[in-house]
Each structure stands twice: as structure tokens, then as C-alpha cells.
């Protein structure tokens, strides 16, 4: 046996080269929580099987690793978001072009908002063509 004291779930400081959290909140930014929740809700609504989601996410992680991401867990929700975008386009809910155009609209809304105010989306404000 060992004379090392057993560590508690929240005490992972003894594992310096394994990335760790403090056993606390799992989302490091609100967008991560949002992307997570959208995925769970879409699955509950029946847009895809959970196994389809796992396959898509696994593929995304593999391809990120192939592109040089050390994949230490901190980029996990980046992969999650890319997988979600991919799956909704595979399911023909929307297209990458439409997503890109909406992103530019949001960028314009963000740029024009007053200090402390929430951005207001104006379709087409980003300059890209919307495809419907």
C-alpha cells in the first residue's frame, strides 16, 4: 500500500500534467453552456440520435487533433460547437452559408450596440446574402 494521503475529488493539484478543474462549474464561458444546452434540446426534440451526436463530436475531435490541437480539454467546447454546426447542416436545418451570414449580422449588431446594451439583430446588416 501507499503512505501517500488519498486525494479528494477536488484536489487534483497533484496531477500537474493532466489538465484539471476544481470539480466546480463545468462551463468556462456562457457560450459553452449555450452550445451545450442547444445540443441537448435539439436531441430532446428528436432532431438526432445521441449516437449520431457522439459520432460527429468524435470526428471533430479527431480532425482537430490531426490539425495539431493538443486537445487538453480547454478546446473541448470549440470542438463541440463545430460538431453542432456540422450536424445541423447535415440535418439540413440550415447551411454553413446561412450560419456565416447570420454571424456577420450579429457582428454588425454587436458593433452598433450602445455601451452596456444588448446587441439587436438586423438581418442583412452584416452584408452577406442570406439564403433561405
Amino acid at each position: 500500500m501507499t503512505d501517500k494521503p488519498p486525494i479528494r475529488g477536488s484536489d487534483l493539484k497533484k496531477t500537474p500534467h493532466l489538465p484539471h478543474d476544481e470539480g466546480g462549474p463545468v462551463f468556462s464561458a456562457p457560450w459553452e453552456a449555450k452550445a451545450f444546452a442547444i445540443t441537448v434540446d435539439l436531441h430532446k426534440q428528436g432532431l438526432f440520435e445521441w449516437s449520431e451526436w457522439c459520432d460527429t463530436l468524435s470526428e471533430e475531435i479527431k480532425s482537430a487533433q490531426a490539425k495539431g490541437d493538443p486537445d487538453l480539454g480547454d478546446t473541448y467546447y470549440q470542438h463541440w460547437l463545430s460538431a453542432l454546426e456540422k450536424l445541423v447542416t447535415v440535418k439540413r436545418v440550415t447551411s454553413m452559408d446561412t450560419l456565416a451570414a447570420a454571424k456577420e449580422d450579429w457582428r454588425a449588431a454587436d458593433h452598433h450596440r450602445g455601451f452596456g446594451e444588448a446587441p439587436v439583430l438586423v438581418k442583412g446588416a452584416g452584408g452577406a446574402e442570406h439564403q433561405h
Binding site: I38, L99, G116
Partner: peptide, 18 residues
């Protein structure tokens, strides 16, 4: 305002479309 990051904008785009 601190501009929203590209990632945040992507989430907003996806959310608004859905």
C-alpha cells in the same frame, strides 16, 4: 463594449436561426 469573439458570434448565429 468588449467585442464579442468569433466563437460567441457563431453561437449567437446558430441560436437565432434555430
Amino acid at each position: 463594449n468588449k467585442p464579442l469573439s468569433d466563437t460567441e458570434l457563431r453561437v449567437k448565429a446558430l441560436e437565432s436561426i434555430l
